[in-house]
Design a protein around this nucleic acid. Structure first.
Lengths: 205, 205
DNA sequence: TAATTTATTGACCAAACGGTCAGGATCAGG
DNA sequence: CCTGATCCTGACCGTTTGGTCAATAAATTA
């Protein structure tokens, strides 16, 4: 409904809808849905509150639009797993990609973290639908590799959970990570080394 | 200030403060701090809003009291690591304990997840203080075991992060986990098996 | 340039929310 | 049973918040 095709939008629409998405990302990722206010989003976007509501009819709509806009970016790395690549390197590449996402897109990570914590009220259809299919595709590949003895046997879905949780942990709980590590260290660089070492051990047949 | 000793409290005070903590746990863990209202807490506790505010002066105070009350429970498992036990079994025991916490106390897990996501506004002193010391204690033990060759060498703090993130993932993102796994499965039981297998591989020297 | 559509905003509204308070109910000790 | 302290609540208050609207400004089109 509000997701008119970009081609049908005026330049002003494109620019302002984008500004609002940016502001919404800032505010929602820092405060969660309930903690965010339209005023904050408007301020972060450099627009007035009524003007924000001129482009998106409601706070809910902004949130939903933001989640759907970010979802592709968020799920992209898993679809890059190449069934014809080297199994171990493919998985390690996925881990590295997810870790890079946590480093470069921590706001997106927190946005989804809030949403899932909340019970995913705006993502239920995606959780039960698209996400499951994407995971199933990866699981099929992983299972084949394990069958072929090119990857150690582990429960593939829980393997994926482990990758999600550990990589996103560095973004979502960054404050805790930094508090525990102390200053003068690079959590993401260290985490990448740790995860590489770890998954090598687990997955080497 | 509000944490009067239980012995100085009347039975009514003990009972009602406890009811409020229970209600607050329900509401804060489901909605986060900003998403929770005193009315909801009061309803969940079976008390009136002014009565809740008779025992705790403000929403902030309830939240702070709840976090501090839950913190000991939350950090207990790590302090149970026995420096004189079998290294691998001690770590695996810790993993199992954390997994049991996620299964049996998912609300507490979500409570802390929201707080850390938010930037830990009510936990900064704990994050920089007590938590770090507790972790340091465990790190010393882990390092000794690794020095002695009784445990494979990995960065101990990141090892701890991995345990936290993976175990808490099953509680905090339970909806996602269930959506991906589908019905008729027991995420926690499967996760425990997976984690046991995984950490055995990683940590066996 | 005139007409029309699109964009923008100050002022406003109703509901929700955190918190207060005066007064009444209940309880414990003498 | 009396009395003082504790406990409880309906009514209320100021603020914040999501959202509306009429009026104006800026683009776009004819």
């Amino acid at each position: 409904m509000t997701d008119a095709k970009p081609s049908q939008m005026t330049r002003i629409q494109q620019k302002n809808r984008d500004l609002i998405m940016q502001g919404a990302l800032n505010v929602f990722s820092a405060n969660g849905f309930r903690g965010a206010t339209i005023d904050q989003i408007a301020k972060s976007a450099g627009l007035s509150k009524p003007n924000v509501l001129y482009y998106f009819g409601s706070k809910d709509e902004i949130h939903k639009a933001l989640l759907t806009a970010m979802l592709d970016l968020w799920l992209a790395p898993m679809q890059l797993i190449d069934p014809y690549g080297d199994p171990l390197e493919e998985v390690l590449g996925y881990v590295r990609a997810k870790m890079a996402m946590s480093r470069d897109y921590p706001r997106e990570s927190r946005l989804f973290a809030y949403e899932i914590l909340q019970g995913a009220p705006h993502l239920t259809e995606i959780l039960g639908g698209g996400l499951r299919e994407i995971v199933d595709r990866a699981v099929i590949i992983l299972n084949r590799w394990m069958d072929e003895g090119r990857l150690a046997r582990v429960e593939p879905r829980h393997l994926i959970f482990s990758i999600w949780s550990m990589t996103q942990h560095y973004a979502d709980f960054e404050i805790q990570v930094r508090a525990v590590l102390g200053s003068g260290r690079d959590p993401f660089a260290e985490g990448e080394v740790f995860l590489d070492q770890m998954y090598r051990k687990i997955l080497t047949p």
